[in-house]
């Protein structure tokens, strides 16, 4: 992301529905992190969801309804930061698809595109990586979500952020990245395939004896946690911001 955010502007939290309803601690950890990095944060409770679940399942009429609500909610926000690569991609890459035929909304979408960030790319765009420090003696590995990687182009950012934490040993799998199997409603429609995919993905960390698997998308986290025990994965699955919260406290 080349867009530069002006220093210490106000950040509006973009809390995905899954975080709002199921994993609020991720939202709290992100707020905590942004605050530590010196931001004034705000949260508009009218927000609920970006519409991705409907969009991905092919229900574009409903997705448009939800997305329109989202556009209203964030009309005023300076910068919008989310703990999810796929929700960010929804706004940045898929809203233009949804509203392609609607000129007035397209203007709003275009402005939103420039203001919406996934948390790790935000830290990068803001040059805040150096301000992250902490200590944790743990062995970790990273799962960069598919949407974060392929839709947003987030690459080594997560790793470099984690490298700021002393004591952490990062395990890099020797196999190519594969999807964890979440895929939104996919994992509910085709649960057996989704489980087997998680199992294959966990295999990449076999033998590494990880303490923590660090992930940057709540959907993947939810899925990984559900599958960990049957896949024989012993470590914890944490969001990047949860991990940083731990590390920065114990520093």
């Amino acid at each position: 992301m080349s867009t530069q955010v002006k220093q210490n502007s106000k950040v509006s939290l973009f809390i995905p529905c899954l975080v709002d309803q199921v994993l609020p601690e991720i939202g709290l950890a992100m707020a905590d992190l942004l605050r530590k990095l010196g931001y004034e944060i705000s949260y508009n409770p009218r927000q609920t969801c970006c519409g991705q679940p409907a969009f991905n399942a092919g229900h574009r009429t409903e997705a448009r309804t939800v997305a329109r609500h989202f556009l209203q909610t964030f009309a005023e926000a300076d910068y919008i930061v989310s703990p999810s690569g796929s929700c960010t991609a929804m706004v940045r890459n898929y809203y233009p698809v949804l509203f392609a035929k609607d000129d007035s909304l397209m203007t709003q979408v275009k402005s939103l595109q420039k203001r919406t960030f996934e948390i790790s790319e935000f830290i990068y765009a803001e040059n805040k990586v150096d301000q992250i420090s902490g200590h944790l003696d743990l062995k970790v590995s990273i799962h960069n979500s598919c949407h974060s990687m392929r839709e947003l182009g987030i690459d080594n950012q997560i790793e470099e952020i984690i490298r700021r934490i002393d004591g952490v040993e990062i395990f890099i799998p020797q196999v190519e990245h594969t999807c964890c199997g979440f895929g939104g409603l996919f994992s509910y429609k085709m649960p057996d395939i989704a489980s087997a995919m998680a199992k294959s993905r966990f295999e990449a960390y076999n033998g590494a004896d990880l303490d923590v698997l660090i992930v940057n998308d709540p959907g993947c986290i939810q899925h990984f946690r559900a599958e960990a025990s049957s896949a024989g994965f012993k470590g914890e699955v944490l969001h990047l911001v949860e991990f940083l919260q731990k590390a920065m406290v114990s520093a």
Partner: peptide, 9 residues
Amino acid sequence: AHACSLCGA
């Protein structure tokens, strides 16, 4: 078309 997690690989 639904047998896909949209990973983009």
